[in-house]
Write a protein that binds this DNA or RNA. Structure first.
Lengths: 350, 350
DNA sequence: CGCCGCACGGAAAACGTTTTAAATTCTGTG
DNA sequence: CACAGAATTTAAAACGTTTTCCGTGCGGCG
C-alpha cells in the first residue's frame, strides 16, 4: 500500500494539443497497477494473470486508450508505416488509387499506415528508396513498373528491406511480388482477335525497359505464330505515349496499305485512342476492325461495350501486395510470397 | 575539459534496424559540444554563435544527419503529417492522384509527409476525421466533395483543427478552401453550346447533396435564362452514376421527342458516355449535337478533340491546398485562405 | 574590487512507450 | 513453518528530441 511520494498536483498543463489524452499512466493510476503491467497486459504478454489482463483491457476500452505511435516508434524502431512509391505514369485512370484502396484494405485491421512518396524526378525513384531505407521512414515498400534489373529492387535486396513489387524482375535472388499474367493476357487477346476472323493483328506494348514488355510480346507472338497470321508492332509508340499520339498513329496507319484490323490494347486509354483514330477514318468497331483491351476500371466496358475486354483487378492486386508485405515484414520466407494474377475473363465483381 | 565518467564502451548493440544512424549525440561527440547546443544550432536558435552554428551544420551535412521524426513528434506533439481523406468516388480518372501530386509538390520542401486515409464506410468519412482529431494522427487534413453543412467541416471547426477543403460549404464560420468556379464553368459551357446554335441544352449535375451542385445549376440556369433557350435537367442521373447508366439514359432520351442537342458535361467520363450513347443512335458529335466538357486530365482532348473542353487544373488545386494548409497550421487567419480557381479556357500546360 | 548584464553554452527533465532486471507474492512441499 | 520455485508484478533505464533552467566567462561600470 505504498503511497506516492510526489507532492504533485501542480498539473503543469502539458502540451495543449494533446491535453487529456489517455496514456499508459492514466490506466495505471486508474487500476492501481504499474505502467509496465499495463503495457504487458495490453500486449497480451504471457506472464500477466488473466484477471488483470481483462481488467486493463476493460479500462483501456472504456477511456478510449490508443497507444502513442510516436512513442512506440521511438522505442521499438518500427514505424508501422508502409510507403507507396507513386509514379507519375500512374496518374491516369486511377491506377494509383485502385492499388491504394486495395492496400488500405489489407492494412485496415493492422497498425500500419499508408504513406505515399511521389516520384518527382525523371528517372526511376531510386533516390526515394534510398532515402526511405537510410532514414527508416517505413517498415516496408510498395511500388510498380519494375524493370528486369530494377535498381530499386537491387537496393532493397542489398539492404534486406521488406518490399513487394507490382511486376517481376529477373534478379536471381527471389523477392516478393504480385504480377498480372501479361503473357496470358496478350496471348488470349490476340487469339480472340484471330477467332473473330481478323487478318492482321497488332499490339501496343509497354515501354521496352519494363519487364512486362517482354511478357506481352511473348504472349502476342505465341498466338501469332500458332495461327500463322500477319502482324505488326509499332515501334514509335508505347503504352506511355500520349493518347493523341496513339490516336494519330492509328489514323495514319489505317490509311496506308495493308493496315492491321485487330488491336490488342493493354490499356483503356490506348483502346479509346484507337477507337477514335479508326472512326476518324470512317471505320467502325466490330465491323471493319476489332479491339480486345485490358480493363482496369469499369470505364471502358461501360462506355464502349463493343470493345472486348479482359479484366485486371488492381484493387485485388493492391490487397494482395499488402498481405504479402505484412508477411514479409513478419519475416516469412520470400519463396511463398509471389502471386501471379490470372486474367479474368468474366466481368469484374465490384 | 571534463571527461565522460561512464565506463561505457560496452556498446550494447542497440536496435539493429537503425544501427549507426547518426543522432544529435553523434554530432555532439564529434564537435565536443553538448547535445543541447547541437539541437539549437541546427534549429538556428538565436543564442548560438554564428561560428558554432556553421560548424554544427557542416558536420551534420557531412555525416548525413536527419532528425528522428518519432522523437521529434513525441517531444513536440507535432506529427509533421498531413492526411488526405480519399473518397471512393475519386478513384476514376486520377482525381485523387492529381491532387496528391500537387499536394506532394507543395510539401516537398517541408518536413511534412503525406498520409492517405481512405474511406471505407458508405457515408461521409466523419469517423475518420474524428479518429484523426482524437488521436492526433496528423497536423492537418485535406478532403474534397464538401456538402453545404458538411459534418466533417463542422467537427473540424469545433475542434479548431487545421484543414483545407476542396469545395465550399455554407457554414457562417469561414474556413480555408480551394474551389473551382463551377458556376463559371457551367455558365460558360452552356453559353458556348448556345453560340454553336444548339436548340436545347442539358447538363449532368453532381449529386444534390454536394455544394457544387448548386453552383453548377446556378451557372447553367443563368446562361439558359439569359438566352431564353429550352433546357432540361435529368433527375435520375448524376455525375456519380455509372457510365453505362449515363450512356443508356442519353441513348434513350435522344430517341424520344424533343431531345436536347447540347450537353454540358462536368466530367470526362460523362462526356465519353454521352458520346457513346449518341453515336449508338447514329448521331455524330459536332453535327447533330455538341458537348462542352470539363477536363481534368489530358485524356479527353487527346482522344476526342471534337469535344470542346474547359480545363480544371487539379494538380494546381492540390498544390494550393497544400500551401494553404501550411499557412493554416502556422496560424494565419482564415480569411485570406480561400482560393477560387477560374476555369481555364486555354489548353493546360503540363 | 565588487557587481551587473550579456553572450554563449550545458545539465537535466520530459514526451509515452518497451524492456531488462529485480522484487514481491503465491504455491506447494519437506 | 520455512523455503524453493513458480507466478506475478514492479522500478528504472532507454529510445532521440526539445525545452527549461542554470552556469560559465567576460567586459564594463560604480
Amino acid at each position: 500500500m505504498s503511497r506516492i511520494e510526489k507532492p504533485a498536483d501542480s498539473e503543469p498543463a502539458r502540451n495543449p494539443s494533446r491535453a487529456g489524452k489517455p496514456t499508459l499512466k492514466t490506466i495505471a493510476e486508474m487500476t492501481g497497477l504499474a505502467i509496465t503491467t499495463v503495457s504487458r497486459a495490453l500486449g497480451n504478454a504471457p506472464q500477466i494473470s488473466e484477471n488483470t489482463r481483462r481488467r486493463v483491457h476493460e479500462v483501456a476500452a472504456e477511456i478510449g486508450y490508443l497507444p502513442d505511435r510516436a512513442a512506440q516508434r521511438l522505442k521499438t524502431g518500427r514505424t508501422n508505416v508502409i510507403s507507396v512509391l507513386l509514379d507519375p505514369h500512374e496518374e491516369i485512370l486511377g491506377f494509383g488509387t485502385s492499388i491504394m484502396h486495395g492496400l488500405a484494405r489489407a492494412l485496415q485491421t493492422t497498425p500500419y499506415h499508408l504513406i505515399v512518396t511521389p516520384n518527382f524526378l525523371d528517372g526511376s525513384n531510386v533516390d526515394a528508396v534510398n532515402y526511405i531505407i537510410r532514414n527508416g521512414m517505413a517498415d516496408g515498400l510498395i511500388f510498380s513498373r519494375t524493370e528486369p534489373f530494377d535498381p530499386r529492387v537491387r537496393l532493397l535486396l542489398e539492404n534486406g528491406f521488406p518490399f513487394v513489387t507490382h511486376g517481376r524482375t529477373e534478379f536471381s535472388t527471389p523477392h516478393a511480388f504480385v504480377d498480372y499474367d501479361n503473357y496470358a493476357f496478350a496471348y488470349e487477346a490476340t487469339k480472340r482477335l484471330i477467332v473473330k476472323g481478323r487478318r492482321k493483328v497488332t499490339i501496343i506494348l509497354p515501354p521496352k525497359r519494363l519487364t512486362f514488355h517482354q511478357h506481352m510480346l511473348h504472349g502476342f507472338m505465341t498466338a501469332v505464330r500458332e495461327a500463322g497470321i500477319a502482324y505488326e508492332i509499332p515501334d514509335t509508340l508505347d503504352l506511355d505515349s500520349p493518347a493523341d499520339m496513339i490516336r494519330d498513329y492509328v489514323r495514319r496507319r489505317s490509311g496506308e496499305p495493308d493496315p492491321p484490323d485487330g488491336f490488342a490494347c493493354p490499356g483503356e486509354v490506348s483502346a479509346l485512342a484507337t477507337i477514335t483514330g479508326m472512326s476518324d477514318q470512317g471505320l467502325t468497331l466490330g465491323a471493319e476492325y476489332d479491339i480486345v483491351a485490358k480493363q482496369t476500371s469499369l470505364l471502358l466496358s461501360q462506355i464502349q461495350p463493343k470493345v472486348e475486354t479482359i479484366y485486371e483487378d488492381l484493387k485485388a492486386a493492391g490487397e494482395a501486395m499488402g498481405q504479402l508485405l505484412l508477411q514479409r515484414i513478419a519475416g516469412e520466407p520470400v519463396e511463398d510470397l509471389t502471386i501471379l494474377q490470372s486474367p479474368q475473363f468474366g466481368f469484374p465483381t465490384p
